[in-house]
């Protein structure tokens, strides 16, 4: 199948999904905004409530899907994603620290920075441990699982010493939700997130070479350890940005690249672009469901991706050929 056609199609679907989802919400379904509306309340809902959430879901879906795709490639493991390696866990811990460290709680913009730092520290720890095992996949995944465990224990420790009112907002982070999103934080994360994704696209040939193993990568003129370390940092930036606005949203980084690989093939450049677009589509749709199925209450979007991703994951295991 023609890859350019598939990518254009995904782009059209994404635009369509954004337009459709803007019209859906607890106040009902209406597309008057497309023709212009005089109703202030309605345009306020569209542009100040729904649009930031849709933009946030679009960016996070894009970021998580690409982060998953790159991790799967450089670790040569189709089960890797930011969550598996403990990068998301570290990022959430970073955000949780804002609760108890007074000078960090001053502004919401400390969230992305702390999320990035948390992600980066996790990556460094995983890197240091696994470099002793020549970055074997099993050591990477194992240390990731253990690290996630430690991070979530520390988050619970922070909860236990925090005031109940503060815990409320943090719970959203643990479940993954766009309920607290607004324009200022979207502005903060957009540039580093997009820059990170573009950097990965420019490194797509190096990433392809890394999937052949370190020795072959060296033979093809790529210094594997250095390039991989750099790619881990970029992935931490992207993951930090995603976690800062939405908390822990699982399975997007696992499921989307996996499906896209079977459609556009494993070549990184195509895979990243297709994953970015379909990750965005998937999360915008999921978040629209999250905020409208039990309206006026809402579900954390992490619950929806968890259920969809979990079922997908089970299906993948049942039909597993090469896991």
């Amino acid at each position: 199948m023609n890859k350019i056609l598939i990518i254009s199609l995904l782009l059209v679907v994404l635009v369509g999904v954004v337009i459709i989802c803007l019209g859906i919400g607890p106040t009902g379904i209406s597309y008057k905004y497309l023709t212009g509306t005089d109703n202030d309340t309605e345009s306020k809902i569209i542009y100040e409530v729904r649009l930031p959430r849709i933009l946030g879901a679009l960016l996070v879906g894009l970021g998580l899907a690409v982060a998953g795709a790159v991790l799967q490639a450089i670790l040569r493991n189709p089960l890797a994603e930011p969550y598996t390696l403990g990068i998301s866990g570290g990022a959430v811990l970073g955000v949780a620290l804002c609760l108890i460290v007074p000078f960090l709680a001053v502004t919401k913009f400390s969230f992305p920075l702390m999320a990035f730092l948390g992600a980066l520290v996790s990556v460094i720890i995983v890197y240091v441990i696994t470099s002793r095992h020549r970055f074997s996949v099993s050591s990477l995944v194992l240390s990731g699982v253990i690290l996630s465990f430690i991070c979530s224990s520390l988050v619970l420790l922070i909860f236990s010493v925090s005031k109940p009112t503060e815990i409320q907002s943090m719970l959203f982070f643990l479940m993954g939700s766009f309920a607290t999103i607004d324009y200022p934080i979207i502005k903060v994360i957009t540039i580093p997130l997009i820059a990170g994704v573009l950097t990965l696209v420019f490194f797509s040939r190096d990433i392809d070479v890394l999937t052949l193993g370190d020795e072959k990568a060296s033979h093809l003129g790529i210094a594997p350890h250095r390039v991989r370390a750099f790619l881990f940092i970029i992935t931490s930036v992207i993951t930090g940005c995603c976690v800062a606005v939405s908390g822990m949203i699982g399975f997007v980084g696992l499921m989307i690249p996996h499906i896209m690989r079977s459609i556009v093939g494993p070549k990184s450049r195509n895979l990243f672009i297709a994953s970015a677009l379909s990750g965005a589509i998937f999360l915008v749709v999921s978040d629209t469901l999250a905020r409208s199925v039990i309206a006026p209450a809402e579900l954390p979007v992490g619950v929806i991706t968890g259920i969809v991703g979990g079922v997908f994951f089970i299906g993948m295991l049942i039909n597993a050929k090469n896991i």
Binding site: N77, T211, G213, R261, G265
Partner: peptide, 12 residues
């Protein structure tokens, strides 16, 4: 031998 993690096309 190379352990192929992903199904690249021969040309790629």
């Amino acid at each position: 031998f190379l352990l192929m993690a992903f199904p690249f096309k021969v040309y790629d």
